[in-house]
Amino acid sequence: MSEQVWPLYEVFIRTRGGLSHRHAGSVHAADDQMALDHARDTYTRRSEGVSLWVVRSDRIVASDPAETAAFFEPAEDKIYRHPTFYDIPDGVENL
């Protein structure tokens, strides 16, 4: 048995047509094809989705927690960027 650990992949599932893919979790796999199969076997057992994306976790470029202040705080006092004055019509979901 190899002691090597398979690389980690992040799994994204589109639950039904029209919605976007959402992060569901992660799987280990030896290659891309196996990652897709593992995602299918791990995360869609209860009909959770109609489409899957997998991407190697180390290929994701993430923001640095140390830079949170510069990245995100300037947006906090700019309430005019939030379209809060729209009325959402009844019956509109997923907005």
Binding site: W6, H38, D41, T42, R45
Partner: peptide, 12 residues
Amino acid sequence: YPELEEELANAN
């Protein structure tokens, strides 16, 4: 199974 994902696949 030595890997969780293959474990699930086999049981499925």
